[in-house]
Amino acid sequence: MASLRILYFAWVRERIGQDEEVVERPAAGATIASLLDTLGAADEAHAAAFAERSRLRAALDQRFVPLDTEIGEASELAIFPPVTGG
């Protein structure tokens, strides 16, 4: 099975307790949001990190995308809060 690398930043990383993880790429048609549901159901740290969806943003293969985007053939997903640079 193909794998999907997931990177976490800022407080999402702190709540999950790791910088990144590798998961099996979900079946065709799965969205970022549905993957977060699956990961959140598995343990409390993920559930806590993903609880407030309105405070989460995502990038798929290093492009900003909405959470309802299909993961498709992407190999890298990042989950993080709204950016605060500048």
Binding site: F9, A10, A59, F64, A78, F80, P81, V83, T84, G85, G86
Partner: peptide
């Protein structure tokens, strides 16, 4: 940059 560069303070 403030709203679309991936930095977190």
């Amino acid at each position: 940059l403030k709203v679309s560069a991936p930095f977190w303070k």
